[in-house]
Amino acid sequence: MRPNFFHHLHPPSIPAEQSRFRYTLGAGGLGIFLSLVLLVTGALEMFFYIPSPEQAALSVQTLTYLVPYGGLIRNLHYWAAQALVVVTVVHLLRVIFTGSFVPPRRFNYLLGLGLLALILFLDFTGYALRWDEGVRWALVAGTNLLKTIPSLGKSLYGLVVGGSTLGAATLIRFYSWHVFGLTLAVVILGIWHAFRVRRDGGIAAPPPKQRTNNARISRFELVRREVLAMLLSAAALFVLAALLPAPIAAPIQAASDSLGEARAPWFFLWIQQLLRLGNPFWMGVAIPLIALTTFAALPYLFETLPTDQQGHWFPRAGRGAQAIAAGIVLAWLVLTILESLR
């Protein structure tokens, strides 16, 4: 048979021990599935969304309330996006906690980190596209944060916002980044990321001689499990979308004096909490960047893992990396919970 990408991603057989759900958590595969859901629902949303300040929130209302299944499609897009953030972070933790980030998988680990950053940007730009009172202050605060960056800030703000204040130029830029720029980057990096898995030796496992269990599962069985996961998560998404509507609010009023509730999207609540603690540049820009850099530095700080410890949860030699990652994610969780309880 002629080699194809699907067969590249699905080798004839893979180690049974490392293809179990309790080892992979299914996070990488789910991430790909959710991305596909987002691409399809997002493309459908583009048929009704109008990226102009006057029309944006109104067209979201039309989509949500008037278009048949429009509300459902918007809710699917919303919940798939929220789930993707969770799934990506879970995937990151799985990779660190199983020591799968060390060379030769170091480069792919970095690609994955880049994907996480892109997904957060996609979530934020998508959130901003609502262009309603619910996102207004998060949008103002989020973009003003750029201004606090020394020397670069002003021009970076101009680059993102497209003017001296938020307006039509900002909306069309966010729209273009969301539906084209960032999406294209995620698609390219995502395909590369999946491609590299097998190039780097497939899913991380100890060398055959050191395995306690040498059983393998077939390509057929792998696909069967993937289909099962897709069907169940699709069903869960549909139920979630039918029951819990995505947030929506009244269009941004030109002369609105009601401050309303200024709350960041949940995945940036931790930054909002940090911003309450001190200097906006350090809290809002530097610390998140330091956290990301720390993650990126892990495969350089902990470069090797004894082969007999590979392919298992919490290898002894990786304790340092595990502690750092757990610490950062714990801090993230605590800050998020603190802020959401306010």
């Binding site: 459908l44 048929f47 009704f48 067209s59 039309t62 008037l66 278009v67 048949p68 429009g70 499609i73």
Partner: peptide
């Protein structure tokens, strides 16, 4: 079917 109804809606 859902997508068809979605796409044929006249704003």
């Amino acid at each position: 079917g859902g997508i068809f109804r979605f796409l044929t809606y006249q704003t």
